[in-house]
Design a protein around this nucleic acid. Structure first.
Length: 596
RNA sequence: GGGGGCGUGGUGUAGUGGUUUAACAUAAUGGCCUGUCAAGCCAUAGAUCGCGGGUUCGAGUCCCGUCGCUCCCGCCA
């Protein structure tokens, strides 16, 4: 080793020790005769003093130093006098008096500031990611990620799970996200796909009798990016045999609870055991299937009070199967009028026909300030205020529209209002389970039903009889774990019988021939004694993002891609040679512009 | 596919409502300095304002296009 100690470990008790440190120059403070260098490595920063009276040679070397030079120093640890202790450094009680210094590598002026916290242009950070990753924030995130994965491995190992790798080159199937595909050289015209998740493979491992499997699995989806979505990402993929929903939920909940208490003890879990909502409840109360339950401001259904209203917006909406619902924004009544107009615009941009706002000025007697109160009877105003438990000074935001629109718009407004009122505490993790998702949803574009979760998800036993007669009514043995408004993971109890799986394929419009061609291996496997099984797949990146208080998952990935799925450091994707294409029997058919 | 934001010395910003040497901080280069820890002081150098076109006497600033990064909708079984 080129060092005897790290830059984070020396303490006053090491006084007098001969040590060798190596790392990067974080800062140099040159006083002419005396030079101070903050030497940095992964473990910390130690101040090195270059005194010409102690070592002229080392001092001369130090005068050459610039930020990010790689330096090896041999010297003597000495305690700092009390008034020179730096309380902001773990090693601030000591310094190393340099006897010998060797520049292992100089460095150009860095394009990013490693030693200060500035928000540099993201493309610059990604292009020079290896420099970006030198920053304490990024190292902290990568270390946290490692700790999370290490805890998961230990936890599952202790519970008799085994980690099994599944192939990255697999078969493309049309269901789900767009596949990344890989051409085969030895089979001209044929392609592998990169897994969107190891779903079928882990189910086959259950057929194999492994019973408890997990994998820290890389997944690939060729879809457009978001702050919490990258083209490749990592899931904790796990599957268990002879379980029901309760078993998977309990295991996952125990894992998360202990993980967070161990790895990020500064985080507070809002509620354990995690509260459970049916999908219908979550939509009704929060307007979202991934609710942020750190704050209330629940959606209140006003429909029962307004069915006979003279106000046509309400009556008309209700008579045509719509809903009237609202949220109560405490204290929002004092905002300027212009902000209410902005909220109306926001609601319309989100798809609502309009937004009704009411300022509660008094509750006994009822006094509302609103563009519509002249259309509402005294009794109706009374009912609205009572049902929403409104108090003077509150702002009420009401939407009358189709149920899906009401949920979407009020759900979004609720989040905006929560942020605005500072109701979202970053140190709190509001985990919850969402269960009883619909099994199928109508796909307008394809003109058929498609699986909400995936086509291997089992239906609730009591709903299964309606699979053919009333598909939209069937609920799934599925469960999502959500936290702070993010979907952290989803899972289900799977179908394990061939006949039931074929029924499901039929329900999503696959012919028996198509089902056989695409999923024949799975159907066949189910004929050889497939056990009941189920599992879940939490997203590691999103979880770590939450634990690290980061706004996007790029901050917890070493080498992420841009929104256009480009790697700015390596410039992937890039053209390949004619020879490579020829070997793969691939001819390009590009627009003239697109040849770059 | 659509909508929004951003792009000015190496880096982070100011300027932007039409006009002169495009300002500040930091980094950089040289000098001074024995106790700093975002060291300090002095001096020097560095941007034709993402790129292309247009309007104008005059464009960093206005208009059109384009590229890059980003946020969102669609999409993400």
């Amino acid at each position: 080793m080129l060092k005897t100690h790290t830059c984070g470990e020396l303490r006053p008790t090491d006084d007098g020790r001969q040590v060798t440190l190596a790392g990067w120059v974080d800062r140099r403070r040159d006083h002419g005769n005396l030079i101070f260098v903050d030497l940095r490595d992964r473990w910390g920063i130690t101040q090195v003093v270059f005194d010409p009276s102690a070592s002229p040679e080392a001092h001369e070397a130090a005068s050459q130093l610039r930020n990010e030079y790689v330096l090896q120093v041999r010297g003597t640890v000495r305690c700092r006098p009390e008034e020179m202790v730096n309380p902001t450094l773990d090693t601030g009680g000591v310094e190393v008096l340099a006897i010998e210094a060797q520049i292992l590598n100089p460095a150009k002026t860095p394009v990013l500031y490693i030693n200060r916290d500035v928000e540099e242009d993201e493309s610059l950070r990604l292009r020079y990611r290896y420099l970006d990753l030198r920053k304490p924030r990024m190292q902290r995130n990568l270390i946290l990620r490692h700790e999370v994965v290490r805890f998961i491995r230990n936890y599952l190992h202790d519970r008799d799970f085994i980690e099994i790798e599944t192939p990255i080159l697999i078969k493309s199937t049309p269901e789900g996200a767009r596949d990344y595909i890989v051409p085969s050289r030895v089979h001209p015209g044929r392609f592998y796909a990169l897994p969107q998740s190891p779903q079928q493979l882990k189910q086959l491992l259950m057929v194999s009798g492994l019973e408890r499997y997990f994998q820290i699995a890389r997944c690939f989806r060729d879809e457009d990016q978001r702050a919490d979505r990258q083209p490749e990402f990592t899931q904790l993929d796990l599957e268990m045999s002879f379980v029901d929903r309760q078993d998977v939920i309990q295991l996952t909940e125990g894992l998360f609870t202990e993980l967070i208490q161990t790895v990020t003890p500064e985080k507070r879990l809002l509620q354990t055991p995690f509260p459970r909502f049916t999908h219908a409840e979550a939509m009704a109360l929060y307007g979202s299937d991934k609710p942020d339950i750190r704050f209330g401001m629940l959606l209140t259904d006003l429909s029962p009070d307004l069915t006979d209203s003279e106000f046509r917006v309400f009556a008309g909406t209700l008579s045509s199967g719509g809903q009237v619902k609202g949220i109560r924004v405490p204290g929002g009544g004092s905002w300027p009028r212009s902000q209410f107009d902005e909220l109306v615009t926001t609601a319309q941009e989100l798809g609502a026909k309009g937004l009704i706002w009411m300022v509660v000025e008094g509750t006994s007697p009822i006094a509302l300030r609103s563009p519509v109160n002249k259309f509402l009877s005294e009794a109706e105003q009374q009912a609205i205020v009572e049902r929403m438990q409104a108090e003077p000074g509150d702002l009420l935001l009401i939407i009358a529209d189709a149920p899906a629109v009401v949920a979407e718009v009020l759900g979004q407004l609720r989040l905006q209002m929560g942020r605005r009122l500072n109701l979202l505490d970053d140190d709190v993790l509001g985990f919850a389970w969402i269960v009883d998702f619909p099994l199928l949803e109508w796909d307008e574009e394809e003109g058929r039903y498609s699986a909400v979760h995936h086509p291997f998800t089992a239906a609730l036993d009591e709903d299964l009889p309606y699979l053919e007669s009333d598909p939209a009514r069937v609920r799934a043995k599925a469960y999502d774990v959500v936290a702070n408004g993010y979907e952290i993971g989803g899972g289900s109890i799977r179908i394990h019988r061939r006949d039931e799986q074929q029924r499901m394929f039929r329900a999503i419009g696959l012919t028996p021939e198509e089902a056989e061609a695409q999923f024949g291996h799975l159907l066949q496997a189910f004929e050889f004694g497939a056990p009941p099984h189920g599992g879940i797949a939490p997203g590691i990146d999103r979880l770590v993002m939450l634990l690290a208080n980061e706004p996007n998952i790029r901050e917890v990935m070493a080498f992420p891609k841009t929104q256009n799925a480009v790697d700015l450091m390596t410039q992937a994707p890039s053209p390949v040679s004619e020879k490579q294409l020829r070997e793969l029997h691939i001819k390009l058919d590009l627009e003239p512009q697109a040849t770059r």
